[in-house]
C-alpha cells in the first residue's frame, strides 16, 4: 500500500492535491482512500491531507503515521513543531519539498534519515496553485501514474472552476511532473506492520489527579501569544511610511487579530510574529499605503 501525506497551509489547495492524486490513482485501477485534516482554523493555518492506495481493499483508517511519501508545500511549516510535518519519517520515506532553494541547503538543514527531493518553484506559480503543483510533483514519483492520468484527475477535481483556472493548473502540474520525471518509481509501497514482533505500546495507567489539575481550564492570560501565527502568512502587509497619513485608526481597528499598534506619533506598526496575512488592512487603507509582499521576497529583503 502507498501511504502519502501532503502538508501545506489553508488556502494553498492541499486538500485538492490529495484529491487529485487520489482520483488519479483510482483511475489507474487502485483502491483509494483520501482525506484532509484541519481543525477550526482558517487560511494560512497548517493543514494536511493523506492518500492511501493499494491493489487490494483498504481497511487501514485515520491519519498516516508512517508515510512512504511526504510532500511539503511550504518550507515555513518546518519552523512550526506543532504542525508535525516530519512526523513518522523514516529511512524509506521520500520527502518532496517545494521550494526555490537548492537541495544541498535543505539536506543540511533537515538531516533527514531518508531521500530528499526538491520540487522547484515554477514560473508564474501563485500560492493558490500550489496544490496542483504538488499533486503533479507527487504523481511523477509513482510508477502507476502518467501525465495523462494526472491531467484527467485535475480536470475532474477542478471541474467546478473556470476553464482558465483549470488550464493554468494543468500547465503548472505538467511542469511539476516534468521537473521530477527522472525520479519515477522512487516511492515504494510498504508492507503493513507485522503482528509477529511489533513494538509494544507504552501504555500507562492514569492516576486520579485533583480537579485543580485535571479540569480543562486555562488560567494563563494571552496564551495565543506563544503561538507564532505569523508563520501562517503567505503575503505580508507592508506599510509605506511615505504614503501613510497617520489617520491612527483605520488599519488598526479593522485588524481582526489586533496586531497593528499605533504609536504616539500616529504611526502604525505591525507585529509580524502574529499577523496572519489576511490583508484586511490593505483593503481598508484609503491612501493605499499598504502593499502585499510575498513572504519569501520579504524574507530575502530582510536578509539583504
Amino acid at each position: 500500500m502507498y501511504r502519502i501525506r501532503f502538508h501545506g497551509r489553508g488556502g494553498q489547495g492541499l486538500k485538492r492535491a490529495g484529491r487529485i492524486l487520489g482520483t488519479a490513482l483510482f483511475r489507474a485501477g487502485l483502491e483509494v482512500q483520501d482525506a484532509p485534516r484541519y481543525g477550526a482554523e482558517r487560511r494560512g493555518a497548517p493543514i494536511f491531507a493523506y492518500v492511501r492506495a493499494s491493489r487490494s481493499p483498504i481497511h487501514e483508517r485515520g491519519v498516516i503515521s508512517c508515510p512512504d511519501l511526504l510532500i511539503i508545500a511550504d518550507p515555513h511549516l518546518l519552523a512550526m513543531p506543532d504542525s508535525g510535518v516530519l512526523a513518522g519519517a523514516t529511512t524509506r520515506t521520500v520527502v518532496l519539498l517545494h521550494t526555490g532553494e537548492p537541495v544541498s541547503l535543505w539536506r543540511e538543514r533537515l538531516d533527514l534519515p531518508g531521500p530528499l527531493l526538491i520540487l522547484p518553484r515554477l514560473p508564474g506559480e501563485e500560492e493558490r496553485f500550489r496544490g496542483a503543483v504538488c499533486a503533479g510533483g507527487a504523481a511523477a514519483l509513482l510508477t502507476e501514474l502518467d501525465e495523462g492520468l494526472l491531467a484527467r484527475a485535475i480536470s475532474e477535481e477542478l471541474a467546478h472552476l473556470s476553464a482558465e483556472l483549470i488550464m493554468t493548473s494543468l500547465g503548472l502540474a505538467r511542469a511539476a511532473h516534468a521537473a521530477l520525471a527522472g525520479e519515477r518509481g522512487i516511492v515504494r509501497q510498504e508492507e503493513p506492520i507485522s503482528a509477529a514482533g511489533y513494538k509494544t505500546p507504552a501504555w500507562l495507567t492514569l492516576a486520579c489527579e485533583e480537579a485543580a489539575v485535571s479540569a480543562p481550564a486555562i488560567h494563563a492570560a494571552a496564551t495565543s501569544e506563544l503561538s507564532q501565527t505569523g508563520l501562517w502568512r503567505g503575503k505580508r502587509p507592508v506599510i509605506d511610511p511615505g504614503r501613510c497619513r497617520g489617520c491612527w485608526w483605520l488599519c488598526a481597528t479593522f485588524c481582526p487579530e489586533r496586531v497593528i499598534a499605533v504609536d504616539a506619533n500616529r504611526r502604525p506598526r505591525i507585529d509580524y510574529g502574529h499577523c496572519k496575512g489576511c490583508l484586511i488592512c490593505l483593503r481598508q487603507c484609503p491612501h493605499h499605503a499598504i502593499s502585499a509582499v510575498p513572504e519569501e521576497e520579504a524574507a530575502r529583503e530582510e536578509k539583504a
Binding site: 481497511h59 487501514e60 483508517r61 485515520g62 503493513p192 506492520i193 507485522s194 503482528a195 509477529a196
Partner: peptide
C-alpha cells in the same frame, strides 16, 4: 469505522498464526 482498523489487525494476527 474504527472497527476497520481492528479488521486490519485481525488479518495481520491471522498471518502470525
Amino acid at each position: 469505522s474504527f472497527a476497520t482498523k481492528a479488521r486490519e489487525a485481525v488479518d495481520r494476527l491471522r498471518e502470525a498464526g
